[in-house]
């Protein structure tokens, strides 16, 4: 109890600095200890990349940030995750409200089988972000613009979202996340299902979004982490091995494991 208030205290002190603070986070899947003792600070208005070999727990950790793991029965989270100094695992927190603040984009583009317009309008509608149709239209338009998809789809907003190309679908999913007006956007390997050209577009988009949002991205590709992120965290076997400015991690890793991974010894 004592320790917790101490942590909160510290968080309040650093309020201006990190958007997300994680301390001593443990995640269990049934009997498996998937995430061990993770401490990390994620600054606002920047892109933080989680890298590491597959199965290292980076996606699992990402999903604890907006409590997406709640939907899995056997998953259990311990430790503190604070967003703006508030513990997201506090019993008073409604995950629904949390997820409006912390949006998410998934590995595989997953547009709903609805029209492009309805895909983007879905979030604002359920959260009641607009008072009338005009406002909703505005939100949809600006979200699509921010996602860089507007010019491609403005003439066919009524077409099904599933009919777009893979890259367009992923940008539609980003637009859908933006439309809820979140402060943080979590991206779980958003480009792994896309071809290089679509990937480039999405990366460009991430870079632009940084101005207004705190972005956490899980990626397989070290080049991508180097291209889009300001800070990088390296996970290995459920442990956060090293975290720091992206340049430092790639040019001057402290840990042997990070070095091995970056130089391609394993992964």
């Amino acid at each position: 109890m004592n320790q917790m208030t101490e942590v909160e205290q510290k968080a309040v002190e650093m309020l201006n600095e990190p958007k997300i603070v994680a301390r001593n986070v443990q995640v269990y899947y049934g009997d498996t200890h998937a995430i061990k003792d993770v401490d990390v600070d994620i600054p606002a208005q920047s892109v933080t990349a989680f890298i590491g070999p597959s199965g290292c727990g980076k996606s699992t950790f990402l999903r604890t940030l907006n409590r997406m793991n709640d939907t899995i029965d056997i998953c259990r989270v311990e430790g503190d995750i604070l967003i703006d100094g508030e513990d997201v695992y506090d019993p008073k927190v409604d995950p629904v409200q949390l997820r409006a603040k912390v949006g998410m984009v998934f590995q595989k583009p997953n547009p709903f089988p609805k029209s492009i317009y309805d895909n983007v309008a879905y979030g604002p509608r359920i959260h009641g972000l607009s008072r009338n149709k005009t406002e909703l239209d505005e939100i949809v338009t600006s979200s699509l613009q921010k996602a860089g998809l507007w010019d491609e789809v403005k003439d066919r907003l009524d077409a099904p979202g599933t009919g777009l190309s893979g890259g367009q679908q992923q940008r539609l999913c980003i637009a859908r996340a933006i439309a809820v007006n979140p402060e943080i956007i979590l991206m779980d390997e958003p480009c792994s299902a896309l071809d290089p050209i679509a990937t480039a577009k999405v990366e460009e988009l991430i870079d632009e979004l940084r101005e207004n949002y705190t972005i956490v991205i899980v990626t397989h590709s070290m080049q991508q982490a180097a291209r889009v992120s300001q800070r990088t965290a390296f996970f290995h076997l459920g442990v956060l091995v090293e975290e720091g400015p992206t340049e430092d991690i790639f040019t001057n890793p402290h840990d042997k494991r990070t070095q091995d991974y970056i130089t391609g010894r394993f992964g």
Partner: peptide
């Protein structure tokens, strides 16, 4: 589909 919706706070 479910993940997408929950991720938006539905």
């Amino acid at each position: 589909m479910r993940d997408g919706s929950y991720g938006l706070g539905a």
